[in-house]
């Protein structure tokens, strides 16, 4: 079942000057899909457009079969899609638990309690630090808070923008493992990663974007082996 599809998307940050020139991306239930490509290819832009953060000039965005083109982020969250930005992704002056509770802002009280249990069992270190200000956490833990916040409403889809950016290789490995866990619990994941090889390795499928257009697509493992993709930006 297709959960999310971007169809022929032409979009940009303003009403003119598009950054995406016709991008097609699909996310099926149960999948992990990565968007990779060189710098400035429009990877993050493509993902953000799915979350209502861009002006769509042409094409459409569907969640399931519902057209959500040019909906606002507040509305999209309520349709079961969560987004974890790359930077400024936690409320730094709020405690870990408060961050998570806000993730369930529009859910009922019992739903929030269940969400907290689920997130704490996925990220046990957060339970210990739940009364700490999240601004004081390490980069990796902060990323966990951000992902935990996104998982609180029990979304169908999680969008991750460069989840391992700025993390040490050890933490990056851990985050990739967590992404697999999240996926195993039934949430489809669409992510953009600089760390393309590792991302594709855990992905069911991947898209390679170049200059705001689709260049390649295939299974994660298939793209890693692809010579052209490798030469282009996987570092040989």
């Amino acid at each position: 079942m297709t959960l999310l599809s971007l169809e022929g998307l032409v979009a940009g940050y303003g009403p003119d000057v598009p950054i995406l020139h016709g991008v097609n991306i699909r996310l099926q239930a149960g999948e992990i899909v990565s968007i990779v490509g060189p710098n400035g290819a429009g990877k993050s832009t493509a993902m953000k457009s799915a979350f209502g953060l861009l002006n769509v000039h042409q094409g459409k965005i569907l969640i399931g079969t519902e057209d959500v083109t040019n909906s606002r982020p507040e509305a999209i969250v309520r349709k079961g899609v969560s987004f974890v930005p790359q930077t400024e992704n936690v409320f730094a002056s709020l405690t870990v638990q408060e961050n998570l509770e806000l993730g369930g802002y529009f859910n009922s009280r019992s739903h929030v309690a269940a969400g907290l249990d689920r997130v704490y069992s996925l990220f046990p270190p957060l339970r210990e630090k739940r009364h700490q200000k999240s601004g004081l956490l390490s980069g990796g833990q902060r990323q966990m808070v951000a992902m935990g916040r996104a998982l609180m409403p029990d979304p169908k889809i999680v969008l991750l923008d460069e989840p391992t950016a700025g993390l040490s290789p050890k933490y990056a490995d851990e985050i990739f493992k967590l992404i697999i866990d999240i996926n195993a619990s039934g949430t489809a994941v669409l992510m953009v990663e600089q760390n393309a090889r590792q991302a594709l390795m855990i992905s069911n499928r991947g898209y390679v974007l170049v200059d705001g257009r689709n260049r390649h697509e295939g299974t994660g493992a298939g793209l890693v082996r692809d010579r052209e993709v490798a030469e282009m930006f996987l570092g040989g």
Binding site: F51, R72, P73, E74, V77, R78, F83, P85, E88, N89, V90, F91, A92, S93, L94, E98, E101, L102, G103, Y105, F106, R149, P153
Partner: peptide, 23 residues
């Protein structure tokens, strides 16, 4: 309260607050 936390959240980062679904 939820409202109070949301106020602190908007004060902390308005952009992230919107992404979280806070009006």
């Amino acid at each position: 309260t939820r409202l109070g936390k949301a106020m602190r959240a908007v004060s902390d980062s308005p952009d992230l607050a919107r992404l979280t679904g806070i009006s």
